[in-house]
Simulated scan of single mutants.
Amino acid sequence: MASQGSRKRPAHSVAARAAQARETDWPGVRLHIVTGKGGTGKTTVAAALAMALATGGRRTLLAEVEGRQSIARLFDLPPLPYEETRIAVAPGGGELYGLAVDPKAALLDYLEMFYRLGRAGRMLERIGAVDFATTIAPGVRDVLLTGKVYEAVRRRETVKGGRAAPDVERPVYDAVVLDAPPTGRITRFLNVNEEVAGLAKVGPIRNQANSIMTLMRSGQTAVHLVSVLEEMPVQETADAVAELETIGLPVGGVFVNMVRPPFLPPDALEAATQGGLDRSEVLAGLAAAGLGRRSRATGNDTSHAALATALLEEAADHGARVQMEHTERGELLSLGRPVYELPALASGIDLGALYELAGRLGEQGAA
């Protein structure tokens, strides 16, 4: 279901592609599906992973299927059209393409590909049949959305070998990253074979679903999960891992996003959590720093005392949070999957931040 604009990219040379090999935890994986609880930064992690996979001269496609134009907003671009569009250049000359998959456009592509409807398909759109089909049959809708990604993974190109070498056929994209629906809906979304079972026993839709599931369950696919170090996202991650394994989908890594380092050394953290920090030392430190001032009415250092109380309370809260994060990190490690950590960036997420996060993922072996 490729759009016309998606076939106009220049081919990379075989030599350049061969020079890009690097160690990764996911050799052979070409479809990286990224899911996570809402609010965990799923799209940011998917974009950083796609950037990391494109580093060093590779070509990667970052696709979304929820109709939110999250990729465009993240890269500060106008809304993406329904065609593969180059959105960034990765470190080392790689290319990152973006695609916002639209179910209506995907259905028209599908009708043209399998039924050669052409203008008749456009007529169906005008009378509302396309909206009806993509709304009343969610299983078919998911086949269309995942089918577009499936086609991008499988699409190939011919690379000219020159005078002394033969032409070589190879995949258009070295990797495809899918910013998928949240963990609460991911199993149903990916299990397209089951979802269309009651709708299409035979025919092109059923065959398409079978082909998609073959790819999904193969060694070319990994379903990665994004979490933060909080109880609900961690539990939802664990539940999603169990559900994905139950239906035979290959679980990838766990990406722990927005990790904040402790502000205190271990001994001080433990003391802060137990309310054992020395108040007199805090007061002395405030005085030495010239913070606060004496009360004109009493001559007492009341502002120092109030500030010290606030700081001790903050330290206790911070210690409790670090302790909780340690526990939740242990829960994620117990899932037995590779775990990658990305820091919380005070400056927010822009293209520069994505480069930084991509570099962190590359260092950890995620790409």
Rank of each mutant, 00 (worst) to 15 (best):
M1I: 06
S6C: 01
A11M: 07
A18E: 14
T24V: 06
A46I: 06
M51T: 02
L53E: 00
R59A: 04
R68I: 04
L77G: 03
E83M: 08
R86I: 08
G92V: 06
Y97D: 12
A100S: 13
K104S: 13
L107S: 05
Y115N: 13
T146C: 15
T146M: 15
K148G: 12
V149N: 07
R170E: 08
V177L: 05
T183H: 08
N191E: 12
N210C: 09
R217D: 10
S218Y: 11
M232A: 13
V234Y: 04
A240G: 09
V241L: 05
A242R: 15
F255Y: 15
V259E: 15
F263I: 14
E270P: 02
E270D: 13
A271S: 08
T273N: 06
Q274D: 09
Q274A: 14
G275P: 04
G276L: 06
R279I: 00
A284G: 13
A287K: 10
A289K: 08
G290R: 04
D301H: 06
H304F: 00
A308H: 02
E314P: 00
A316I: 00
A316S: 11
A316C: 03
G319T: 02
E325S: 01
H326M: 03
G336W: 10
L342C: 10
A344D: 09
G348R: 08
I349C: 10
